[in-house]
Amino acid sequence: MSAVAGDGTATARIGISIAPFAPLLACLGLLAAWQIGALLLGTDSIPTALDALRAVPDILGDRSGLANILDSIRRMAIGLASAVVVSIPLGLAMGRVPAVASFFNPILMVTYPVPKAALMPVIMLWLGVGDLSKTLVIFLAVTLPIIYHSFEGAKAVEEKMIWSGAAMGMSRLQIMARIVLPAALPEILAGCRTGLVLALITMVTSEMIARKSGAGNILFNALDMGQYDTVFAMIIIIGALGIIFDAAFDRLRRALVAWSDTRQDIPLSFS
């Protein structure tokens, strides 16, 4: 009995000690699978993981390469921030005012499944080929999940809390700002986290058709020229950006809504 218990404790201890490194191990496993797969296939269009990793410093060490990536991040940040500013109040209003929900719900349901990057050619005709059209595509992609989560979060706020606020003499705006918003914040931030990933995806796809600069500039040029090491190196960089942004956002989320973290989250990021 004692031996079994000892084994169980040891296993649990190993599990605990490995847990912080699990995302890193997963990445290493993925790279190893990629390396073996590429070696087995032996085709030019799939370089080995090592070849792709070797091309990463070339991109990041080149001033124009770095400027391209930073341009994309700037557009992504503007699109995401604008979406947050617009979507959270709208989602909260939809969650608490049935008339607002009745008005916007059908519009959102129709537009939700439309791939936003596919709108790029049309938006380009209205707003030109500059930053505005790309930022708008990012904005549109990010808006819907944040609205949806804000809506669900606001809807789930207990009526008793609203009544208590009203009984204390709060106005509708005060109830929204001081009761609904904090109570819905965990759900809102879950929407923002989804939005962050979508912003990163749309950031690249918005540069597919027309571009002056950006991560897509490096990626799609390399693809056109058959420079597959660079293509996959850019994919690695974009993936790494996703991990960094997600980890940073998760830290922010934990700081803001630590009170709501009752469940054991699966570590998706390195945070």
Partner: peptide
């Protein structure tokens, strides 16, 4: 003001739209 496009067809659209 340079803008890079993915092929000539999107540029036809951009010309037609005055972009």
């Amino acid at each position: 003001e340079w803008t890079q496009f993915q092929g000539t067809s999107p540029m036809t659209q951009a010309l037609a739209a005055g972009a």
